[in-house]
């Protein structure tokens, strides 16, 4: 058995963005542009990056919920990106998704039990009696009482609703669960409950997660490997412990500085590494390194020639022309108090 469950190669998603003027050329939002990564079985792969960097679009493309403009997605040897119609519908039991807003992703008129059973009904898994038993098992698995099955979504708290969404995502016994900001709408106390639940379920069921978040501390807590996205591209990717010990891309430095702890050390880090301003428009971005507009270390070459991801260390990739020269920032002084 191959160690890799999910293999993403050169994934590209473009959205039409009208024309530049009435006779101008057709323009596109390059939401995801040539993204490649592999996710090992029973591991958690994190995707971080600023708002608009394309994280959710990657998730939706993996789920085949948005059109793929190019590239391949393979789940355990099965070419997901090539599946159509009934074959795609049948394959869906293997990959499920948990969304940020647990309320918006649940039909308010259906009871929790029916919502959890729905994927089983749609995919025709088990007999009706088996499905009912499965619903009870799932409820207890996510820490909800059996009676919760009779309640409507609005009768749950935010944290309970997210438990419900997780139960529903697990109903078809998927191998891959794609989580898009699953705890971002929850307060810290409930977030801890959900993160612990996700880790426990992973240990018990051997689940593989793709986990999207803009909270670096949460990503560090949960993920084995992390990809950093900027304007539709992966700019750095590494095992979690390496990314936070020796990040190599100036955008990663900025992201880490923004999230660094309070106190003088964190402030010093922000002064040094936090990049001001905003990313350029994702509509037909300029050639060269996309981060060059904001990068404090920019050179003439960066503006014209796009850097490719290349090895910085074992299992560690970064896309920066000046990687060797810039080295690793001294984050030692910013250790958490």
């Amino acid at each position: 058995m191959n160690d890799v469950l999910l293999d993403v190669t050169n994934l590209t998603v473009r959205f039409p963005a009208g024309r530049a003027g009435p006779f101008g050329p057709r323009r596109h939002v390059h939401a995801v542009d040539g993204v490649s990564f592999q996710v090992r079985r029973a591991s958690t792969f994190g995707i971080v990056g600023q708002s608009g960097s394309g994280k959710s679009t990657v998730a939706l493309a993996l789920m085949r919920l948005v059109g793929i403009s190019g590239g391949d997605v393979t789940l355990d040897g099965m070419p997901l990106s090539a599946l159509r119609g009934d074959a795609l519908r049948r394959a869906r039991r293997d990959f499920q998704m948990v969304f940020q807003d647990p309320y918006a992703s649940l039909d308010p008129r259906r009871r929790a039990g029916a919502l959890i059973r729905e994927p089983l009904d749609l995919l025709e898994i088990g007999s009706p009696a088996e499905r009912e038993a499965e619903v009870l098992r799932l409820l207890s698995q996510v820490g909800l009482p059996a009676e919760a099955g009779r309640l409507f979504p609005h009768q749950f708290s935010g944290g309970q609703r997210q438990r419900l969404c997780i139960a529903r995502a697990l109903a078809s016994r998927p191998r891959l669960v794609v989580c898009d900001e699953p705890v971002s709408a929850l307060d810290v106390a409930v977030q801890a409950q959900i993160l612990n639940l996700m880790r426990r379920l992973q240990r018990q069921l051997g689940l593989t997660y793709v986990f999207i978040s803009h909270d670096l501390a949460v990503v560090q807590h949960l993920c084995d490997e992390v990809a950093v996205m900027y304007l539709g591209q992966v700019v750095e990717q590494a095992p979690t412990h390496r990314l936070f010990a020796a990040p190599r891309h100036p955008y990663t430095w900025s992201l880490i500085a923004a999230a660094a702890s309070h106190g003088a050390a964190g402030q010093a880090m922000r002064r040094r590494h936090l990049t001001p301003g905003e990313p350029p428009s994702p509509i037909d971005p300029p050639p060269g390194c996309r981060f060059s507009v904001q990068c404090p270390h920019v050179t003439a070459r960066c503006r014209t020639e796009a850097p490719h991801l290349r090895p910085a260390a074992e299992g560690h990739l970064a896309a920066c022309h000046r990687m060797e020269e810039l080295g690793v920032p001294d984050f030692g002084l910013a250790e958490v108090a």
Binding site: A217, Q220, H241, L243, F244, S261, E335, V336
Partner: peptide, 10 residues
């Protein structure tokens, strides 16, 4: 809430 661990602490 998880705390970000940087450098050697990571």
């Amino acid at each position: 809430s998880p705390r970000l661990r940087l450098g050697a602490a990571a």
